[in-house]
Design a protein around this nucleic acid. Structure first.
Length: 271
DNA sequence: ATGGTCGGTCGCCGA
């Protein structure tokens, strides 16, 4: 089966439901992972997604902050929510696909929203940064995030870290800016290595090329200087790597009316 | 030069 999968930090699903519909009509993903939905599950716009052809929706929302959702044309075998750092915030949801989706082998999908980490890049001074570092350590240590052998797993989301030099507009100027400090880059890559994950963007796009998925709201014109960062990621287990046939970042979405500061990232792969 | 802008929800917090 060919899977088209999109991940997008939507920064309020209710405010931007029309933009989500626009994305769906343009990209037609089989599965859409959202982060920062910012609404409780009872307030999630389920009917709109069902009208758009997505019957299967897994939610982990909370009031006002964070929140992740998996919106799918394919039915789930089951869904699961994990907690990190002994907090009850909504930063993870996973779903499994199998026979109901006409797959002969299971496929597991994790959708993450990693803490942003505040402004000061010192865990001793900034509890939000300490939380982010601990979250990344727990991702590394989390056994279900270690696909082995022939396991078919995908991990997507707003990981809030741009790990490589060309994942930011200026490596030098961002070394002390949360999202690109050496310690968090090391921890994200350690989690990736521990799980033997393949970073699809960097598998497809040369390390020498700049790649961004986020541009700050705090600029009069986000296109001036193109000061972006690659915060949104798609990782696949080794068993899925050779099935990847396409990868794209919908940069145009940053210019849509009342945009999210993140743009959708899409992978196409055989599963 | 060291801010700037968002969204949720109503005086800030989190990003």
């Amino acid at each position: 089966m060919r899977l088209v999968l999109t991940t997008w930090n939507i920064n309020s699903v209710r405010l931007r439901i029309d933009l989500v519909a626009k994305l769906i009509k343009q990209v037609r993903p089989d599965v859409l992972c959202l982060q920062e939905t910012k609404c409780i599950d009872d307030a999630f716009p389920l009917k709109r997604f069902k009208r758009l052809g997505y019957e299967h929706i897994a939610l982990n929302g909370q009031k006002g902050y964070h929140g992740v959702a998996v919106i799918s044309k394919w039915p789930f075998e089951d869904t699961n929510v994990r907690t990190f750092c002994d907090k009850v915030d909504s930063r993870h949801i996973s779903v499994a696909f199998g026979e109901k989706a006409q797959l002969t082998q299971p496929l597991v999908l994790h959708n993450f929203y990693v803490p942003a980490g505040g402004d000061i890049p010192d865990p001793a001074l900034n509890p939000k940064f300490e939380h982010k570092l601990q979250f990344l350590d727990e991702m590394k240590a989390c056994e279900p995030l270690h696909p082995r052998g022939g396991d078919r797993h995908i991990l997507v989301g707003d990981l809030n870290v741009a790990p490589y030099e060309n994942d930011v507009w200026s490596h030098k100027q961002l070394l002390k800016v949360v999202s690109h400090t050496p310690i968090e880059c090391e921890k994200l890559l350690a989690a990736q290595t521990e799980g033997e994950w393949v970073d699809v963007a960097r598998e497809r796009i040369a390390m020498s090329e700049k790649v961004y998925t986020w541009w700050s709201y705090r600029a009069a014109d986000w296109t001036v200087g193109n000061r972006g960062r690659r915060l949104d990621h798609i990782w696949v287990s080794r068993a899925l790597k050779d099935g990847v046939s396409d990868f794209s970042i919908l940069r145009d979405a940053r210019s849509w009316e009342r945009p999210s500061d993140h743009v959708p990232v899409t992978v196409t792969l055989d599963v």
